[in-house]
Design a protein around this nucleic acid. Structure first.
Length: 794
DNA sequence: GTAGGGTTAG
């Protein structure tokens, strides 16, 4: 039988091996603890305190609390450990409760320092100072740490140069003006203050620099604080100058510099520094590698990233477990961003220890390429989740058209007690955009305002698109106008919103305004502008903007841009110009180009060119149903019914099936058309009767022999009426003519409006001279005068 | 004091 003391010594020494604390040592410590439980050893004293600390720091505060509650009279160390953990989580109420419960006789300087830091880290400078006051009143002697924490608290309150100067004077008066740690804290106060948008950062940085220069003894922290200060205040030149002046080559400072370059997108300089570290013999750590790997993916340098990966695998020195974890996490994300999921998955599977970052990285990899089913099962499998996990999943669902599921998950997240951040809201709002659910979207909007998230960029941008896709451009515009900060995404979203509603000219005007505000257009801006021009018939303007892409903004047009230009020219009937453009392309024209050409030929009945385009498409993508349908439509436009029949035979011979976009017809053999109004629409019944009559008529003409109509009353379930028919979309479309003016038609779920439907809507909008707004799972369609804002056949 | 996982636009 081993006695308690021997076992205690053994466990204590095992736990001391678990330092420094990181994900790896935490796992080790938990194993040690499991062993204690298995062998019946009941930890107490410093062993128990150490365990509490470890559970607190490895995000298992609930279990730490459980251990804590079992101690009859916990000492000051255990209490401090626990309230520090609560404070880190932002739960100051519980933290204060524990701190207040520490008897005066038990208190020490350390616990006061911790409470001051707790408040100042949570942004409550005044409360921190109050604790400091209480400490002095009770006669505790402040030490250097106290001063550093108090300075941190003061720097929160000091929001301009004057406060910082007062702080400076106070330090000198206190006689601590030459203590390095105190001066470091003061410099850090200046630097933090400089990041505030309300003050002159250059003045404060100059003051910090002066202080730094005059320091009697600088340590590593002094240098790093100063360098990161410059980096954070966007003065990379000054940061670099300082770094180059350092005699000691400190890896932390180099990492800070590299990360600065990466964040400012100076990838090449970051790589140069990385290489220089080798020649100077500076030992790189996980921070260096993670920055460089992320730089490779941001810069689109797949090969470079792979080289880094290969190098990491080759290194002879045994890397630390923390190094392996961090670097592999970065690599998972790197491969994920390039869509190389097999590589990402392989790294993930082989990792000896995974943390939440690894799981989130692999999850977003699957989400990004749209492999939602696999993403869902990863989400289910995850041992723990955080705000980020939920956000990735929600927006992933939304972006892949699963609006309902996205909203569901968003609600589930709230049920589990997580407070969604603005990014999560953005995902939920996108879900509403996908569903065309104005009601839900407006609700989320008002919640955002209540929560004070309404100045958020991402949420605002999502709102613009949501309102636009739900058919209310005015709301989209008012969001855009009231957003305190906008970026190029906001401008793009708003320009697209106008273009989608057929306001091509206004879209272009907004684009011109954007240029006046010195916002640089990007490749997406040009895609939007080109299709806006296309719908407004602004050929000259479209060509002009296309030309400025490279000449003014250095953006090389991609195939998608060429396709829009071809579309623009063909819609206007300028086939010669379109051919010139295609021939001038730097690379071999692909599917989208020939499709644009064929679609244009269909509109204008340009048979010869249309057939040429179709032949190219058959070569490139023989199974693509769109080509056959466009071609047969072209023949139909010209009344060449024999040729239409030939195309259909060709489809059968080649076994061409309709794309999934349309195969939903086969899935449940029903078309759902919803009226978005919440009110009961008696006209639905009229439409139903009308359709019945229509079908009878069509049958007489030998058309749609097997059409049946079913009228669903779905009021209870969806508060909406549904009309469903068997396979006959055209009849539904005609039926819609009977709907009240201004009714919005929504194709439910993740469905896309089909080609026949689209034609019918185009036709109706021309004949009845009425604007029809339809949205489906993918796009917004605004039909006016025989044309549709979506710009595509389907 | 440094890093790795998120969002929004076509």
């Amino acid at each position: 039988m081993v006695d308690f003391r021997t076992m205690a010594n053994r466990y204590a020494s095992q736990l001391s091996l678990c330092l420094p604390q990181n994900t790896f040592t935490h796992t080790l410590a938990r194993t040690v603890h499991a062993h204690m439980i298995a062998s019946g050893f009941r930890p107490r004293g410093h062993i128990l305190n150490r365990l509490i600390d470890i559970y607190c720091k490895s995000s298992s505060i609930g279990y730490a609390r459980h251990l804590f509650d079992q101690i009859p009279n916990p000492d000051v160390i255990a209490r401090t450990t626990l309230f520090k953990a609560y404070a880190t989580l932002g739960n100051l109420k519980l933290a204060k409760e524990i701190f207040d419960g520490i008897p005066l006789s038990m208190r020490d300087t350390v616990c006061y320092n911790a409470m001051i830091t707790a408040y100042s880290h949570n942004g409550d400078g005044l409360a921190a100072l109050k604790v400091f006051g209480g400490m002095r009143k009770e006669g505790f002697r402040p030490d250097n740490f106290t001063f550093s924490s108090v300075l941190g608290a003061l720097s929160l309150i000091a929001d301009d140069e004057k406060h910082c100067e007062q702080l400076h004077c106070a330090v000198i008066r206190s006689g601590l003006g030459s203590v390095t740690s105190v001066l470091n804290a003061l410099i850090s106060a200046y630097v933090n203050c400089a990041s505030s948008p309300l003050v002159s950062s250059s003045l404060l940085m100059a003051a910090a620099r002066k202080l730094f220069e005059a320091m009697p003894k600088k340590d590593e922290l002094s240098w790093t604080t100063m360098i990161t200060g410059y980096v954070r205040n966007d003065d990379l030149g000054a940061a670099r100058e300082l770094l180059d002046g350092m005699t000691e080559k400190l890896v932390v400072a180099w990492n800070a510099m590299i990360s600065g370059y990466v964040h400012h997108r100076f990838y090449e300089v970051a790589f140069q520094m990385f290489r220089k570290m080798f020649s100077l013999g500076i030992h790189q750590d996980e921070y260096t590698y993670t920055s460089i790997i992320s730089a490779s993916s941001n810069a689109g340098l797949y090969k470079y990233g792979r080289q880094i990966h290969a190098y990491v695998l080759r290194t002879e020195v045994q890397p630390s477990p923390q190094f392996i974890l961090s670097v592999h996490n970065a690599l998972i994300s790197f491969y994920g961003k390039f869509g190389k999921l097999d590589e990402a998955r392989q790294i993930f599977n082989q990792m000896p220890i995974k943390d939440l970052v690894s799981w989130n990285a692999v999850l977003s990899g699957y989400v990004n390429v749209g492999r939602i089913e696999e993403a869902k099962s990863i989400f289910q499998e995850m041992p723990e989740r955080n705000l980020l996990t939920w956000t990735v999943m929600i927006s992933g669902l939304a972006q892949n058209g699963f609006g309902e599921e996205g909203l569901k998950l968003f609600n589930q997240m709230r049920l589990e007690g997580l407070e969604p951040c603005d990014y999560a809201y953005a995902g939920a709002i996108t879900s509403c955009a996908v569903l065309g659910s104005l009601e839900n979207g407006r609700q989320l909007h008002s919640q955002l305002v209540q929560l004070g998230h309404d100045s958020s960029l991402s949420a605002g941008n999502a709102l613009i698109t949501m309102y636009a896709r739900c058919g209310v451009v005015e709301f989209a515009y008012s969001v855009f106008l009231t957003m305190p900060y906008v970026d190029s995404v906001s401008w793009n979203a708003m320009i697209a919103a106008l273009a989608q509603h057929g306001h091509g000219v206004q879209a272009i005007q907004l684009y011109e305004e954007m240029l006046k505000e010195d916002i640089l257009p990007d490749r997406i801006t040009f895609l939007t502008i080109l299709s806006a021009c296309s719908h407004a018939g602004l050929v000259k303007e479209g060509r002009f903007y296309f030309d400025t892409m490279y000449s003014c903004y250095g953006i090389t047009p991609g195939e998608d841009h060429y396709a829009r230009l071809v579309d623009l020219l063909c819609r206007a009937g300028k086939f010669f110009e379109a051919k010139d453009v295609i021939e001038s392309m730097p690379s071999e024209p692909g599917v989208s180009i020939w499709e644009a050409l064929l679609a244009g030929c269909r509109i204008h009945g340009n048979m010869d060119l249309g057939i040429q385009a179709a032949e190219r498409l058959f070569q490139l993508k023989p199974q693509h149903d769109g080509t056959y349908i466009l071609l047969s439509n072209m023949y139909a436009t010209l009344g060449q019914w024999d040729d239409v029949a030939k195309v259909r035979t060709l489809m059968k011979e080649r076994g061409v099936k309709k794309e999934p976009a349309c195969s939903w017809i086969e899935v449940d053999n029903k078309v759902h058309v919803f009226l978005v109004d919440d009110t009961v629409h008696p006209e639905v019944h009229d439409v139903y009767k009308y359709l019945e009559g229509l079908v009878l008529e069509m049958r007489k003409l030998g058309y749609v022999p097997d059409t049946k109509f079913v009228l669903h009353d779905m009021e209870v379930e969806h508060k909406e009426y549904a009309l469903s028919t068997h396979s006959e979309k055209l009849a539904v479309a005609y039926g819609i003519m009977k709907l009240p003016i201004g009714a919005t038609i929504r194709i439910f779920k993740n469905l896309r409006i089909c080609g026949d439907c689209h034609n019918a809507f185009e036709f109706i909008s021309k004949v009845v001279e009425r604007e029809i707004i339809v949205r489906d799972g993918k796009r917004f369609h605004h039909f006016r005068n025989g044309d549709c804002s979506c710009g595509n056949y389907w």
